[in-house]
Amino acid sequence: MVTGIRINDKSRCTEICTGTNCIYVCPVGLFTLSDGELVFHEEGPCLECGACRLVCDNIIFDYPPAGEGVLHRYG
């Protein structure tokens, strides 16, 4: 799955960020900590909620390309 999300400057995650807000708000855990380092799983099943974009200005959020991304069968 293609997300529209990217991290602007990865070095900020390791060098400056102390909050790791992204890992708490992402409902599918696209942001995880591995040995104290932030890993962004860009192939993960993003639900397109947009919460990550509100908690970190280093996250550039866009929706996936037209026709792609999460598909609700029920909603």
Partner: peptide, 21 residues
């Protein structure tokens, strides 16, 4: 089907270091 949902403020999640999942 039964739907169950829950939500809190985005800021609350980060302040409380609580995962929505």
């Amino acid at each position: 089907h039964v739907g169950i949902n829950v939500g809190v403020g985005v800021k609350t999640l980060t302040c409380k270091k609580l995962k929505i999942s």
